[in-house]
């Protein structure tokens, strides 16, 4: 039912109905944000990716083929953008372009105000940042976005077997990292 509504909204938007786009954004903005947030570990980067994804959505919806769910397409964009962002940040770090002052700013600006939740997110970030980006991606899709391996396979284009193996490895590492943190 949801998929059908998505398709109708996309078609309406392509016909020029701007409110259909707003409706789509309202439907997916939080999912995009939280996926990016867990992938990148802070609000500022997640905000940047969320906005980028929504801009891509606006500009490229005309290329969307109705052969898969819209959420698959949106998650694919979010995931690719997040992983590319991680790579860019790594490069910046290597060339020392990532200034400490910006790092501090990243942690100050946040939509999470509750200290307990902040600590939880911080702990999650510490645990996840030790995973390679691809394992982190699978772990987040499965654990937090509650997607099935079949859905993750459609998003990432990888086989279900390799995704399960990746998730198994990620799970082992996460549990070890949780113990190390304590």
């Amino acid at each position: 039912m949801t998929e059908k509504n998505d398709f109708i909204l996309v078609k309406d938007f392509l016909k020029g109905d701007e409110s259909a786009f707003n409706e789509l954004v309202n439907r997916y903005k939080k999912k995009i944000y939280w996926h990016a947030r867990r992938m990148l570990g802070n609000h500022m980067d997640a905000d940047e990716i969320t906005q980028e994804v929504l801009i891509v959505l606006y500009k490229k919806l005309n290329t969307f083929k109705f052969d898969s769910g819209l959420y698959t397409w949106i998650f694919r964009i979010t995931s690719t953008r997040s992983i590319n962002y991680i790579k860019k940040k790594k490069l910046k770090k290597i060339f020392s372009l990532d200034k400490d002052e910006f790092k501090n700013l990243n942690y100050k600006i946040d939509i999470v105000k509750n200290i307990e939740d902040k600590e939880k997110l911080e702990e999650l970030n510490n645990v996840l940042k030790k995973l390679p980006p691809r394992q982190r991606e699978v772990f987040i899709f499965r654990r937090f976005d509650q997607l099935s391996f079949d859905e993750i396979a459609k998003i990432t284009g990888k086989s279900i077997g390799s995704l399960k193996a990746s998730y198994h490895l990620a799970l082992k590492k996460v549990l070890k990292n949780i113990d190390d943190e304590k």
Partner: peptide, 23 residues
Amino acid sequence: KCLELENENIFDESYFINLIPKV
């Protein structure tokens, strides 16, 4: 479970409300 947040919707809603105008 400890890594999960109780509710992802309890946060600063104004951020999400302002997202569309920003975009």
